[in-house]
Design a protein around this nucleic acid. Structure first.
Lengths: 238, 238
DNA sequence: ACCTGAACACCGTTCAAGT
DNA sequence: ACCTGAACACCGTTCAAGT
């Protein structure tokens, strides 16, 4: 709050391009936060713990991020940007390219499962985060859709992936919480009335239906098929 | 507000089927929590605020629920159980029945948008919560699927609905935060290079693509179509 | 059986102050 | 410009105690 006399003299590099003094950086903070999330999960991340992890006063973080949600936004952007669709091969069949993209998206989300609730309905809003979006849209466009239908299709496919991965993660978490004890399916089977739940009872009886990944695979394939059949206008094979 | 000693006669019913003394009930706690969520959103729900809402010591709640996640589980069950598919009409076309079910699921989730992150990948685990699941499976079965494929299809459709609704809610929230200022789409359009983002730039140029509900509709239809075409074995029309 | 009060071990955030 | 310390207003939860 002092008047601040501005440049006592050349004394300091007048136009150094970067201050280059940090010690604490946005990036180092993000890295430390990711380390905590990797180790203990997102729900264990606190500003104070993060300060400790960085060997720094927790309040220092507030100089680099206005608050915790801004920090969380940054963490989510890291995950979003880790989706790399640059290896997409335009030579392959449309269905394959889309399925591949869905898997890559899925794997990126699975890498930070505890972040998933926080990511909920979020769409990427930065250049690196949008790159895979562009790729996805272009695949749809190349298959014969209008840009608008391609955008919608991309959005629908992304919604499915997020929803499916969320259930995948939650189910796995439930399974390991259940531990040794009887699977939830068999537990329910004993309770459900076959009169009111004739179909569910039959599913439970097999007890071991599909694994999460197989379910994801089938869902993604069906959705892709439906999207292509619905929005690709009839045209010659080239 | 007077103490009101409640029939001093008979001393006390020795074997009354229910204690019937509560004052504080699981149900009254749940109702109060829902009221807070309605008013301020789930993120504002705390045990202490809930105590105040009930006019009771916050710690009393711990007699009825072991902790906050157990309470949250109960709240989620309320939402899950509010999904009422009992009006499903087996006379209508399969696609219509499924689309209708998807909409009902969607509307139930939209009623408590702030609860959505907490609901993430959750599947219902109580009788009333499972009723709509049974209905959905039966629709697929009646259309000609095996029980297992029907289960998978139901699960896939549910994943899509949750994913789509999550994005819907988040997008709406972003829009109202943006308020008067230029829409995100147009803001991005100025930033994105048409060389790197040829398709996205075109989408943004129109600026106003589809609304959330229209997107949901198209996604649900495409997914339903894909599921039916993929898993309904060829058979005569009856 | 049902509820209370005090206490514990945490949170996120603000802000004046240090260098 | 970058970091610190103390303080504020909260949290969820435990537990001995009240009725």
């Amino acid at each position: 709050m002092t008047p601040r006399k501005k440049t006592a003299q050349t004394a300091k590099p007048p136009k150094s391009v970067k201050p280059a003094k940090p010690g604490l950086t946005r990036d180092s903070i993000i890295a430390a936060a990711m380390a905590i999330i990797d180790r203990d999960g997102y729900e264990e991340l606190s500003m104070r713990k993060l300060g400790k992890e960085l060997g720094v006063n927790p309040m220092s973080i507030y100089y680099h991020f206005p608050n915790k949600v801004a920090l969380t936004d940054a963490l989510i952007e890291v995950v979003m940007s880790s989706i790399d669709l640059s290896l997409d091969d335009p030579g392959r069949a449309t269905e394959e390219r889309l399925l591949n993209a869905a898997y890559i998206y899925r794997n990126a989300l699975l890498a930070y499962p505890t972040l998933i609730p926080a990511m909920a309905g979020r769409a990427p809003r930065t250049i690196p985060g949008l790159r895979p979006v562009e790729v996805l849209i272009s695949i749809f466009v190349e298959s014969g859709m209008t840009v608008d239908d391609a955008f919608t299709s991309m959005s629908v496919l992304a919604s499915f992936v997020r929803g499916a991965v969320a259930r995948e993660v939650y189910t796995e978490l439930e399974l390991q919480n259940a531990g040794q004890q009887e699977s939830f399916a068999t537990a329910l089977a004993g309770i459900l009335s076959p009169v009111e739940f004739p179909n569910l009872v039959k599913v439970d009886a097999r007890c071991e239906y599909l694994g999460s990944e197989a379910m994801f695979d089938r869902g993604a394939r069906a959705l892709i098929r439906g999207l292509l059949e619905t929005y690709v206008s009839e045209k010659e094979e080239d």
